[in-house]
Write a protein that binds this DNA or RNA. Sequence first.
DNA 1: CTGAAAGCGCTTACAG
DNA 2: CTGAAAGCGCTTACAG
Lengths: 353, 353
Amino acid sequence: MSTRPSSRPQEKIRTTAELARHVGLSRATVSRVLNGHEGIKQKTIDRVMQVVKSTGFTANPYSRILRGQSSGTIAVCLSDFKHYALLQKLAQVVRLLADAGYTALIETVENSDHVRSVRLAMRMRAEAVIFAGQHSGAELAAHVQDLIAAGIPHVFTDSCAEPAANVVTADRVRALELAADHLLDLGHRSIGIIGIIAGRTPVEDARLGGLRRSVEARRLDPARALVSLTGCPLGTSNLIYGREMAGRFVASGKMPTAFVALNDEMAFGAIEGFRASGVSVPGDVSVVGFNNDDIAVLTSPSITTVDAEVGASAAAAVAFLLDQLRKGTAVTGYQSLIQPRLIVRESTGPARA
Amino acid sequence: MSTRPSSRPQEKIRTTAELARHVGLSRATVSRVLNGHEGIKQKTIDRVMQVVKSTGFTANPYSRILRGQSSGTIAVCLSDFKHYALLQKLAQVVRLLADAGYTALIETVENSDHVRSVRLAMRMRAEAVIFAGQHSGAELAAHVQDLIAAGIPHVFTDSCAEPAANVVTADRVRALELAADHLLDLGHRSIGIIGIIAGRTPVEDARLGGLRRSVEARRLDPARALVSLTGCPLGTSNLIYGREMAGRFVASGKMPTAFVALNDEMAFGAIEGFRASGVSVPGDVSVVGFNNDDIAVLTSPSITTVDAEVGASAAAAVAFLLDQLRKGTAVTGYQSLIQPRLIVRESTGPARA
DNA sequence: CTGAAAGCGCTTACAG
DNA sequence: CTGAAAGCGCTTACAG
């Protein structure tokens, strides 16, 4: 039986009690060192930390949290897992949280069942909640109130109708207003809408609102200037949907001279569809995309698009939360809109005379 | 002071102790009901469950886990957050785990620091660990051994050199062998490689190995039949890289008649690049992509590609883990390869005479 | 079939 | 500056 603790090198240390025994101190003191408390003899600190370093010991997180320590967890409620843009946002959020020392607890909200996810977040002692994607539903407001009542900061990165909710998001109204302004400036008076469907999500309605605002600002009639084809449910592929819709517009007889698409992929699909029907872009019609994806740069013609700065908006949302966690506050009713950028490329041109 | 517990409706119940007091039972009995133990009077069960239903009470997970209950958590170690395919895989894995009642604990492994992530997984009492993406490094083997020693099931969804590791993955060797067989069958004898770089990742090396196997099976010299341009670091955009590389191959003078690209986007970029240089696809050269993305269907020419069935492989990996969790076993050294499919489209044709 | 008691591993007043 | 003790909320032998 060696009396020199340090002579037992590879011994597994699993609890603070074992660590305490190993260094000949009490669990209380070891705990204090582990938590970086003030007023401890440097020699004691060194004694503990040396073993911690060599064994890689970390205190059981469940005990710590049960005892009242913060969980270091932030819940991320995703509306779905289907959209690439949302996955990208998720990836970015997780990375930003990790950089700040937080663990992301990812939840998917199915059937708008926010009861389950918000409760889970609270049960897991999440220190904050991020809602990404399209969230809605009658009960959502109540759950936002629960979070506020519990003093847990939250933020929506896309939209939330509840006035008390915090929302940090790209300004989609302005984004489509920019797109429509650009087309109207080029002399277009009839804009076809591809893939942005009224009543589907608040975000899409916001985009349609932007188009309308632009049109109305010029005293044009939105009912005439904005053209949607009905009865075209979205499929799985943006590219293919865009191509289909181009064909349908050509076949419909009421062919606008310009188009705005849900995103760049769909715009590209539409351009290919027009080409297949003998309609040239931008010679015959103009097409505007959305997102400023790689595809918008590379294709021929390259695609005029609106960069909604979703990356910047996700970063702003996370920063907003981290700031509150630092300050220990929980803001309500905060609204912040990130400004979009119009990027003019080859897919738009003057309306035909 | 009401003595009828049910007459206090909206009272917040936060602990099993409160719940026990509320229904007039002991914490032990309440706990048994909550955990669905056998041998409890139906009336007692009903009494507890009615309050549980109405209040939505759930036991504090930290206490449960501290007391030895399983965590319901599965750690997902991602090598990075950059690749779309990996994000898709992540999304699918998280969804499949959620369907099975597990929570995903997402970790990113930076600088191949598997020490941190595997330790975290064990500390968090993860019941299993999924490694997705490119994992390598000298210490990885040791951590796999730690998991095995601790009886925690694991699986790699892409690759792992450690023999004891479980790997369920798309057969990338076979995938590229299929691609090369197709091109060789068409009479091509010189295949340019776009974006698949030797020594970058085990997965890319596997793909190169598949090309070599196909070439060698016909008694051709891989050093002559397979052409790579050196000194072309990958950028952020597959599309743009593909376009660049097409230009470089044209400029290089040693122009193959066929190409395989890292993925469909890169193949598309290459096709555009060839077109810009006056080289037609498939008239002058053939191009094969990888992944069978939407873009491969839509573009003109549509792109011949290999579907590696990554979705199926992720599902198989999760099923493999869930099966072990059900059985309470921890397999080692399991290897499963998911078969790829060659999908012939317009971007490949006979070699020019 | 149910309850009183011990204990999971930690942290923090409370004493010294 | 450090230790003995209580307690976070749960579950499970151990008794009845």
